[in-house]
Amino acid sequence: MNLVSNAAEAMPGGGEMLISTESRYIDRPIRGYDEVEEGDYVVLTVSDTGVGIPTEDLERIFEPFYTKKKMGRSGTGLGMAVVWGTVKDHNGYIDLQSIEGKGTTFTLYFPVTRKELAKDKAPVSIKDYMGKGESILIVDDVKEQRDIASSILSELGYSVSSVSSGEEAVEYLKNYSADLLLLDMIMDPEIDGLETYKRILEFHPAQKAIIASGFSETDRVKEAQKLGAGKYIKKPYTLEKIG
């Protein structure tokens, strides 16, 4: 839907949109926007005859909020980041071709597997996730996400506090301590998780943290991990992920 809505918005005066799917075998790597490796794929293509994407925007179009802040598009600014994250979560690839004034084509490659699905694992007992009163600070700009994480962690026996921005987290930790941060990577419009963690490390150099995001693991997540952050978890928050 994100690709379709973007294509429609790119044709304010009308035009043609084409959506197609096919099975395709790639016998040699494709060196395009993304490098597509050899293999079997299900391919989804969405093309339009709209205004096209300026060359200077092509490299950054999948960044969160870029289409809204820099290109003036409507919506949350997260649509293209969701597309990128979804494809990467399926170990897929994206090719993008665009000519200003003529249109844009997004081609999504989802790898096909012929392996049998793994059998469901035995459920883990909630006792395996229980804490012992350790303090956790949740840093997330979305209230619903804070509430969900707080509820899960409180039920597991942790002492939970939460704030809605990186700046609030920095100020909180100047006065209080937390055994662990549950840190959202993407927070708008303030500083993101990486910058928040950097500022906290200036006065709490041994601060432990877990990075969370609704999108695929990014270079900024990896940079935070190099600084000392622990595992990365992908939202939505669940007992198995954050317990």
Rank of each mutant, 00 (worst) to 15 (best):
V139R: 01
F110K: 06
L108F: 08
T49A: 04
L181T: 05
S74C: 06
F215E: 01
H204I: 06
F65V: 03
G77F: 01
K102T: 01
L108S: 10
M71T: 01
I210L: 13
V112F: 13
P29H: 09
Y93A: 09
G193M: 04
L78S: 10
D57V: 09
F203P: 03
S98M: 00
I30Q: 03
G133A: 05
N6Q: 14
D27H: 15
F110W: 01
E100G: 11
P123S: 04
M11V: 11
D219V: 13
Y93C: 09
Y93Q: 07
S216Q: 07
E134M: 08
L18W: 04
E217S: 12
D188W: 09
A149G: 01
H204P: 07
R114C: 13
T76F: 14
R60C: 02
E240P: 08
D95T: 11
E190W: 05
V170P: 04
E35K: 09
V160P: 00
Y93R: 07
P29D: 09
E155G: 14
I138L: 02
S47K: 12
G72N: 07
D188S: 12
G39F: 05
L173A: 03
M187G: 13
T218R: 10
I138H: 03
S177F: 08
K88P: 01
E38K: 15
A10Q: 08
I94D: 09
E59Q: 14
D89A: 14
G193N: 02
K198I: 11
L44C: 12
F215Y: 11
M11F: 03
D179N: 13
L108Y: 06
D147F: 10
M11K: 00
F62P: 01
A149Y: 00
L173V: 10
P64E: 03
T55L: 15
V221T: 07
V51S: 11
T86I: 12
V221I: 05
T107M: 04
E37L: 15
V112W: 06
K127H: 11
S151C: 09
I126A: 12
A7C: 06
D40G: 07
L108C: 08
I136Y: 08
K119Y: 05
V221R: 00
E155P: 00
G103C: 02
Q145F: 08
K115T: 03
Y66R: 01
D128P: 02
E16D: 13
I152N: 05
S5Y: 02
V83G: 06
G85R: 06
K69V: 11
P123K: 06
A122P: 00
R114A: 11
P12W: 04
V139F: 05
D141P: 11
M185L: 15
E223L: 14
E195S: 13
Y176D: 12
I210Y: 13
Q207L: 02
S125V: 06
E217K: 14
S154Q: 08
K88I: 02
L137K: 03
K70S: 06
E223S: 07
I186A: 10
A206D: 15
D184M: 04
K88Y: 06
D89S: 15
K235Q: 08
G193E: 04
E16P: 00
M71D: 02
S23N: 13
V46L: 04
Q207M: 12
K235R: 10
S151W: 10
S98V: 01
L182A: 04
V4L: 15
L18R: 15
